[in-house]
Structure formats: C-alpha cells, structure tokens
Amino acid sequence: MIAFLIRRLFQAAIVMFVISLLSFSIQDNLGDPLRELVGQSVSEEQRQELRDQLGLNDPFFTQYLRFAGKALQGDLGTSYFFKEPALQVILKKLPATLELVFGATLIIILLSVPIGVYSAIKPHSLFSKAVMGLSIVGISIPVFLTAIMAIYLFSVELNWLPSFGRGVTEHVFGYWDTGFFNMDGLLHLLLPCVSLASIMLPLFVRLIRAEMMEVLESEYIKFAWAKGLAPTRIWFLHALKNTMLPVITVGGVQIGTMVAYTILTETVFQWPGMGFLFLEAVNRVDTPLIVAYLIVVGAIFVVTNTIVDMIYGLVNPTVRLTRSKA
C-alpha cells in the first residue's frame, strides 16, 4: 500500500510538473500582464522599470522557478478581474463543478451497468438492438445540442425543470455549498447532469456490453454453468466482476475527461462552476485564473486516476497493492 502510494505520488508530481510548465508558458505568452496592472498613462520607462521589478525580464527558467516556488505554497497569482488570489477564486467554484461531475457519474453508472449487462445477456432481444442503435445516435449528437433540446423540452415547453443556475444550496463542512440536500438544488442538478452524462453514457453502455459478452463466452463462465449455479449468480457475480475490470480502467480516464466537458455544459446551463468561470477568464485574458484552473483540473485528474487505480486493485486479485513493487 505504502509503495503504491509513493509510486502514485511520484507519478502525480510528474503530471503536475508538466501541467505547471504548460500553464506557465501560457501565462508567458498570453497578453501583457502589465497592461492589466497599470493604466495607459504610464510611460515606457516606468513600464520597463516595473518589468524589472516584477522579474518579467528574467530568463524563462528563472521565472518558471519563481512561479513554481510560489505555486507550491498555493500562490498562483492574483486574478486581474476579481483582485483576489486566483486559486481561492477557483476553489470557491470547485464544489459546483464537482457536484455536476459526481451527479453525471452517478447517472452513468446507474444506467450503463444495468443496460450494458442486460443487452449482453440477451444480445438478440429487441431491447438490446434498440440500445445498440440508440447509442450510435447518442454518440454522434453533440452535447450542446442535447443540452439545448433538453432545456427546450423540459424547461420551456413542459416547464418541469429549471434550466439555469444551482438553485438553493446549503453550506456544509464550513466550505462546501451543496445542492444535493434539498429538492430545489436537486432539480437544478438534473438537466445539467443528464446532459453531461449523455456524452459518455452510450460509450459506457457499449463498452460494458462488449466486455460482458466476451466474458460470458469464457471457460470459467461455462464451468460455472456446469456447476449448476443460478443464472443470477453467474451473471452478476462471476461475469460482472470480470467485466468491470477493464471498464473501471477506461471509465476512470473518461470521468477525468468529463471535467473538461463541464466547460460546455456549465456555459449552456449558466452553472456557476469552474468551467463557466474559466470561459469568462479566457474572455477577460485573466491569465492567473486560467493557470489556476488548469492546475486544479490537473490535480482532479491525478486524484481520480489514483482512486480508480485503488478500486481496480480492490476488485482484481492479481493486482495486489500491498505487494506491488514501487
């Protein structure tokens, strides 16, 4: 376990290093920070002096080290627009985005597993054929279209669900604003989560179906039948557990990727999360905020992958976390 964590931390450090390098290059190339800091009236000599003072004339590497040193202490610069530490601004929006991703993940798991499993068990059923057809359609429809159609149908026409914002949220743990504990918050979550989930859902259904069908053909499943076990036990224990191994690996990466898709979803639903903020930051050329966003997203990616690896290790006995070599 310790060895696993150390190895993971090492990997995380490398990933974060690359992200920081990327972020920093962006900061270096995007707009002129001085223009944001001082007005038009400042003369060119004064500007050069300021540049020297701020270290903007130092070599790239020196500047990067300074940036990285500060970043390690949680200082990613001050947002030009909000005049607040960029990291703080981003982290305030983190709960909204994470809840969106969490809700979408929940929907994906709750739908894709039963649908995938059923259509693998009964591959010739009408249901299975419908699922295969619909999932192709689903994969090819862009998210914003799904989102806009959902808004039109459920908010505009039927007036059942709210179409923007988070609704009522509650403050928990002294930091987190959550929409999960009241009806209004949940209703606001529904459409954005479904839209976000719709991107990955067809992919997951197809993946689970394909894996499960392959597993059902294996010798150990035939042996399980020859033992006289009940079909439910064979399907939901023997086969499903083996099906989930590759699905977990792929799924982990996909859920990490989903964070990127939140930019689109949050914009369509005016969801006050990091993605929405990021797009605003890009429009305002608020580089510290952009950099802070990239780094936080990178961190989320590393954390989800670590969690997924740990779950994988728990399900797959051939991967023993305790015995793995660092």
Binding site: S218, E219, Y220, I221, K222, F223, A224, W225, A226, K227, G228, L229, A230, L237, H238, K241, N242, L245, V315, N316, P317, T318
Partner: peptide
C-alpha cells in the same frame, strides 16, 4: 437441469488455467 449439473453429473474442463474464475477465491 441445474439440479443435475454439478450435482448428479459433474464436468472437468480441459485447461485448468482458464476454468477457475480469476476474481473469486
């Protein structure tokens, strides 16, 4: 049929490396 399989008639397969489920003890 399930009351026969594994109970009255048992079967042994060819490849022991593939016959046991890898994720169950």
């Amino acid at each position: 049929m399930r009351t026969i399989r594994g109970n009255r008639i048992a079967m042994i397969f060819q490849d022991p490396m593939m016959t046991l489920n890898p994720v169950l003890t």
